[in-house]
Design a protein around this nucleic acid. Structure first.
Lengths: 235, 235
DNA sequence: CGTCCATTTGAGGTGGATCAACCCTAGTGG
DNA sequence: CCACTAGGGTTGATCCACCTCAAATGGACG
């Protein structure tokens, strides 16, 4: 976070800002608003360039983040460079929330991304006096756990085609606008999320394209033409 | 939980019981005690036979459980029967804790198991007035999330041998007594936990045995003779 | 001591990985 | 405005780690 000082930085009392638009592509319950509608909580805006690190694995968890625009990947690495992406964070999503002292995964901007952030310490302070806030933090962590549990099933037991079908339905749900989704991430990111190689992801997408189940307009602009078929593949 | 009425059932005020021994094989911070040292919270003891279901996937989350003795598997199924075990719960562990209305995974006793349980509703009630309890619940869910994140890396990116090595080190840490671990689960359970077949698990164990890295005294009694080697394999 | 299930071991098949071109397109500079 | 380039994406050929199917072995328990 050292380079933060060298970049544009905007700080303001959160309760003058939260409640306004935060630019998600679709209606999203504003999780940050729910936890941050409190005097004394200060939110800061910050931006990252494509592929810039937001925090590293096992780094002290100083801030909690919300994506305003762009996209973020959270991941773990093995010593030889193998990577597992645990989650993609899209506009509206909160990430980096930890009750412990350190981040369990690293986080990087996938594309140019701006975030809102608050100090973990101040959030903890508020949670220490307001049970509603404490409850909300618990619920957010539980939401992440639910996603992780679903993803373990995918990684441990689904075939390549089932994984890709599940991925497409997830992204369709989370970022499709007017029936079209604009994926921010490359094939390698998708592979590292699904426990596959980028070639296998590409082949699965080509197969779905050949069957007319999806349409492309550019490799990252996808229209789902047959969600039911994908749901069936998804097992 | 209907069959509960047909079995031995013992209820008592939790603060007369918690704080005493709960029979974990090793010193464990008593998570249940920390959340339950409150007037009005009632803990019930209950037992399950080998392979008995404790709750099903998507069933209402009526109780929160702590293993007193025995072992439990939490898992998800695909429609065709493929199974992913998300976690094993051993003496001292809390499981079935959900801020939502339903259980995200099913739970079964692996062997004869006894648990202590409290109503989720009463726990929530206490959490609604006591921030310390609320904080503890959050921390427990975050602990499960951490495990799930580590396990995603294993399922998505580790080789069969690395998975088995990681499993052995985890079980050694959690249930070894006098340098020996008595695994409660069969090879199929291990495979469904690691995203492998039971045959692949068996072959990996045989290989480690042949190299002298572990010793057997019966298929489920294992002694680790070279933890460093396992840590290296674990990548 | 026999039965039954868990485990091991073997033989062979295969889904996805790896290695290798090639292609497409967005961005760059002339 | 277009040629050039680089990085991302696709496709093909081959390989191999793990799965599947099958059989033998072992151990726990009546």
């Amino acid at each position: 976070m050292a380079q933060m000082l060298t970049q544009t930085l905007k700080t303001e009392a959160i309760n003058t800002q939260i409640g306004g638009k935060i630019a998600p592509a679709r209606p999203v319950s504003d999780q940050f608003g729910a936890i941050a509608g409190h005097a004394g909580l200060v939110a800061t805006e910050f931006s990252y360039r494509k592929d810039e690190e937001i925090y590293g694995e096992d780094e002290p968890a100083e801030y909690v983040y919300q994506v305003v625009s762009g996209a973020v990947r959270s991941y773990k690495l093995l010593s030889d460079g193998r990577r597992q992406i645990g989650a993609f964070h899209l506009p509206g999503d909160v990430f980096g929330l930890e009750p412990g002292q350190t981040h369990r995964l690293a986080a990087e901007a996938i594309i140019a991304t701006s975030v809102r952030l608050v100090e973990r310490a101040s959030l903890e302070r508020v949670a220490g006096t307001d049970v509603q806030v404490a409850r909300k933090l618990w619920a957010m962590t539980a939401g992440e756990l639910r996603h992780a549990e679903d993803h373990m099933l995918l990684l441990g037991r689904k075939t390549a085609m089932e994984r890709v079908a599940t991925f497409l339905l997830e992204m369709d749900r989370r970022l499709a606008v007017a029936n079209m989704m604009a994926l921010p991430m490359c094939r390698r990111d998708i592979g590292d999320y699904l426990g596959l190689t980028l070639e296998t992801v590409s082949r699965a997408l080509s197969q779905l394209h050949a069957k007319g189940i999806l349409g492309f307009s550019g490799a990252r602009q996808i229209v789902l033409r047959n969600r039911q078929h994908l749901h069936n593949l998804d097992a």
